[in-house]
């Protein structure tokens, strides 16, 4: 219960940062996608059922804050959760390298899924390909930086704050990249 509460607070903080801080810190074009990093985090460290539902809910929130058709990101994040869950199931998640790898891979998959859904379901969504083509590398870079900062912050929090020790995450002995 305590772990679930901590996880909820952790995700809510990420939502606040993504929706209120990032739009003011970064120009209108590129900003880190903490929601995606959270999806990867949930796929790594949350339970299967809670994680999947949380990812769907995160996606729906993203749709509201992004002005998209409700359900677009819900579907994308739920699908990403399952794909990443399958990919990480046979590997050791105590180290941080697979996490960064999955953030980069998740960015690519997210873009492909969004572009596919927007183009396939919306007759006017063709322009999204231009953003996807030019935006993949800067977005992946920003997401990796966000994931690095988030994991470092998480590890420091777990090490120094007794109340955060139950937060799931990679091994505290891990030094990072």
């Amino acid at each position: 219960m305590r772990r679930l509460l901590l996880l909820t607070v952790f995700i809510a903080t990420a939502v606040l940062v993504q929706t209120w801080l990032f739009p003011r810190m970064f120009p209108i074009s590129w900003k880190p996608d903490l929601f995606l990093v959270m999806v990867v985090y949930l796929a790594f460290f949350a339970s299967f059922f809670q994680g999947a539902l949380a990812c769907f809910a995160l996606g729906c929130l993203m749709d509201v804050f992004g002005g998209n058709v409700l359900g677009l990101y819900g579907l994308v994040y739920a699908a990403l959760f399952f794909v990443i869950r399958i990919l990480v199931s046979p590997i050791n998640i105590e180290t941080t390298f697979p996490f960064y790898y999955m953030v980069a891979l998740g960015t690519c998959l997210e873009l492909i899924l969004i572009a596919f859904l927007v183009v396939f379901f919306s007759p006017r969504g063709g322009g999204v390909w231009a953003l996807v083509t030019f935006g993949l590398f800067p977005q992946a870079g920003l997401n990796l930086v966000a994931a690095f900062v988030l994991l470092k912050g998480l590890q420091a929090l777990r090490r120094k704050a007794f109340w955060a020790a139950d937060l799931p995450g990679p091994s505290l002995e891990e030094s990072g990249l």
């Binding site: 058709v69 579907l75 739920a78 379901f121 919306s122």
Partner: peptide, 24 residues
């Protein structure tokens, strides 16, 4: 149960999205 849950959630999410697409 995990596989069934995943399929149900994905299909439900797709239906949810396509429903809202109609009333975008």
């Amino acid at each position: 149960r995990k596989l069934v849950f995943a399929v149900i959630l994905l299909v439900a999410a797709l239906l949810f999205y396509s429903y809202h697409l109609r009333y975008r």
